[in-house]
């Protein structure tokens, strides 16, 4: 029996463009050097998987406005702190005196609000289905504690319509295991019916190798389209029903803007009307705005796999991990940052 690595290295089938749509996949693929063992006709494209990358500059502008104009304490996942807005990043706002705090979980932001009744605490709720339940639980906890000084600034996104929008950019998807841990794999079977192939993959090196081996096995056998769940130990076909129910209770689907990709209908989630007291946009009257990305930035084409990071005129010159221009350079997992740091 061949090992996954042997299957990958000995692959002799047609050329394959495989898109990973999760930043953590991108990161691990680079960290363990998986690209280096792929045969030349197999290409891995880093899709829009990192929610930091797809967060539009206008969202950061809103967070900065809440921090500087409304004096809110902003609690956020560390990833967002260096993301450029139109003028300022949150790190920039912090150097001007804004209260910006990195937290491990939104539930900690609720605790911070409870412990500091004089502060208005706003949690920046970004992320895909994996992360949405944590934001919903935060609102639930704040409501149970009757906290009036906690709200969230939402920019949550959902994958299914993004898969459809990007379906033509790749021959197969590496579906992010933790998104499907929440929503299950039913959607992948629907996509299969639409002719879109992919496998659900875990995040460790061995799991990624196994998933890639499965894709190449199907490609070699000429199966078209195909789907497999290679992460059944965690991502059950039915997902996590309690999490799905929670999301439905607190959030409603909406159209969402993806940095670089534009608006994808039905690809976002916003807080339900019932809970709008916890929506920072309502509470502080901060309307959505698109902001202005840097003119030369080619993030959009990079996210779609049309351009390689090195083909962007800003890459490595104006735009580096220390001074990121586009969001793909900001997160460790952004394609540009990964290419810059790991080469190739």
């Amino acid at each position: 029996m061949k090992t996954p690595k042997e299957i990958i290295e000995s692959y002799s089938g047609r050329s394959m463009r495989i898109m990973e749509v999760c930043g953590t996949h991108t990161h691990e693929i680079f960290r363990c050097g998986i690209r280096k063992i792929l045969p030349p006709q197999v290409e891995l494209i880093s899709g829009p998987g990192c929610p930091v990358c797809v967060t539009p500059p206008g969202y950061i502008d809103s967070a900065v406005e809440l921090a500087l104009k409304h004096n809110c304490m902003i609690c956020t996942f560390g990833d967002l702190i260096r993301v450029p807005g139109s003028q300022l990043s949150l790190a920039g706002a912090r150097s001007q005196g804004a209260k910006i705090k990195a937290v491990y979980t939104p539930l900690d932001a609720v605790e911070i609000a409870a412990a500091n009744p004089q502060e208005e605490v706003v949690f920046l709720a970004v992320g895909f289905e994996t992360t949405v339940p944590s934001a919903c639980l935060a609102v639930k906890h704040a409501q149970m504690q009757n906290l009036r000084n906690f709200s969230i600034l939402g920019s949550n996104k959902t994958m299914p319509n993004a898969y459809r929008a990007l379906g033509k950019c790749a021959d197969a998807f590496l579906y992010p295991g933790h998104v499907h841990t929440i929503i299950g794999s039913g959607i992948c079977r629907e996509l299969l019916a639409d002719g879109i192939s992919g496998v659900v993959a875990g995040f460790q090196a061995d799991e990624l190798l196994t998933a890639l081996a499965v894709i190449l096995h199907h490609a070699e056998a000429g199966d078209e389209p195909f789907f497999e769940n290679c992460y059944r130990r965690i991502a059950k076909d039915t997902g996590n029903p309690a999490a799905v129910k929670l999301i439905e209770e607190f959030m409603t689907p909406c159209d969402a803007e993806w940095r670089g990709l534009g608006v994808i209908p039905g690809s976002g989630l916003k807080i339900n009307k019932t809970y709008e007291n916890f929506d920072a946009r309502c509470k502080f009257n901060v309307p959505e705005c698109s902001g202005t990305p840097h003119a030369g930035c080619r993030c959009g084409e990079i996210l779609k796999g049309i351009l390689k990071p090195q083909e962007c005129p800003l890459f490595g010159k104006v735009c580096t991990p220390v001074n990121p221009v586009g969001a793909c350079m900001v997160s460790h997992e952004g394609s540009c940052s990964a290419y810059y740091q790991y080469g190739r």
Partner: peptide, 22 residues
């Protein structure tokens, strides 16, 4: 040299150490 035997670059040091979720 990573756990799968491939060789890749150690990301160069850069900026503030921030915990990440993604």
């Amino acid at each position: 040299t990573t756990e799968i035997g491939a060789q890749t670059m150690l990301p160069p040091p850069g900026g503030e150490l921030l915990p990440r979720i993604c």
